[in-house]
């Protein structure tokens, strides 16, 4: 598959954005083919949102260039805007208005007049199962309903590229599945989707290609399978019977297999990339010989979590809220 300009929805070269002393995005290249779901994966503060905002013309790039649906983000932002939609991390809706009013307002801003705006709003409400709440103020919506309305608001006109910034952050598992289902359906209908996520499972489930971002740089890119393969053939998971032996066991494994060892937060579990079964076997034997009581061990394909660890040397923080204020508010 050639990535010439005509089948690329997004083509970015060397994008940079600084905020004072902080370089949020430090030179990122990105090629996203039309019609695919592309995930930008990374921990908080990696620069995902800033990257998305630059591509969506919300933040100017300090350096580098990018085209979205063939239009230059710096030279023709208005043309870019005409072919994209963005659903930010926090529902960008007018809470005082009803769901229907919100959609009608956007339809009118796009140029639908009178009845056409109402018809489009009602179509979207029906498609997103919000007809029953059409006349309710958005402030009375549940989190899942808000997110659905927010995505509906991005589809008033079918966008070429839909940017979704952490589309399932803060949603309960069933609402999250609903949003995933929706994103897949959208992609099937031909919309290119660029989403950011800090959930490894989400990128694995949804995206055809994944770019892993850390400290403003792209540290890896590929399909989920390619990324997993990059960490070696497999990962050795070891459960210990005695948690106090954790550090000693970790050091031993690291020395034996020559890779960084990830400690599970729950305690007595370690995982480490292993080149092949023979190496893994030798490492387990060495553990037992050293007097470590091994409760369980298995060799498996790496999860994205382990991929991320192998690439960055730190675990991807996934379930912690973004900032303490939010945690206090919820």
């Amino acid at each position: 598959m050639t990535n010439d300009a005509s089948n690329l929805a997004i083509c970015a070269r060397g994008l940079v954005r600084r905020f004072g002393d902080l370089t949020a995005v430090a030179g990122i290249d990105l090629d996203v083919r039309r019609g695919m779901i592309f995930a930008v994966l990374g921990p908080n503060g990696a620069g995902k949102t800033t990257l998305l905002r630059m591509l969506a013309t919300l933040t100017a790039a300090d350096d580098g260039t990018a085209t979205v649906m063939g239009h230059d983000i710096a030279a023709a932002p208005q043309k870019v805007r005409a072919s994209i939609a963005m659903t930010g991390q926090f529902a960008s809706l007018d809470e005082d208005l009803t769901g229907r009013d919100n959609l009608m307002m956007l339809a009118r801003l796009w140029g639908f007049r009178g009845r056409a705006a109402r018809i489009r709003a009602d179509e979207l409400l029906a498609a997103f199962e919000l007809s029953g709440a059409a006349r309710k103020q958005v402030k009375d919506y549940s989190g899942g309903m808000r997110r659905r309305l927010d995505i509906a608001a991005s589809l008033v006109v079918t966008p070429g590229v839909l940017f979704l910034d952490e589309p399932t952050t803060g949603l309960d598992p069933s609402a999250r599945k609903g949003v995933w289902h929706l994103i897949r359906q959208l992609a099937e209908s031909g919309v290119t989707i660029l989403l950011t996520t800090q959930y490894l499972e989400e990128a694995d489930q949804l995206a055809e290609r994944i770019a892993v971002i850390d400290h403003g740089r792209k540290i890896a890119e590929g399909t989920s399978r390619e990324l997993k393969a990059a960490t070696g053939s497999g990962v050795l998971h070891v459960s210990l019977a005695d948690q106090s032996q954790l550090e000693a066991a970790a050091e031993l494994l690291a020395a034996r297999l020559g890779s960084a060892v990830q400690r599970s937060p729950e305690g007595a579990e370690l995982s480490v990339p292993a080149g092949n079964a023979a190496d893994a076997n030798a490492a387990i034997a060495a553990l037992i010989a050293a007097g470590v009581s091994v409760a369980d061990f298995r060799l498996g394909a790496p999860s994205l979590d382990e991929v991320f660890f192998a690439l960055t040397g730190q675990p991807a923080t996934s379930e912690t809220p973004q900032n303490p204020e939010e945690a206090a508010a919820s």
Binding site: R53, T57, M86, A91, L106
Partner: peptide
Amino acid sequence: KGLFDRFRTLP
């Protein structure tokens, strides 16, 4: 509330 982010991505 991020409402302006939406407005600013509209043409």
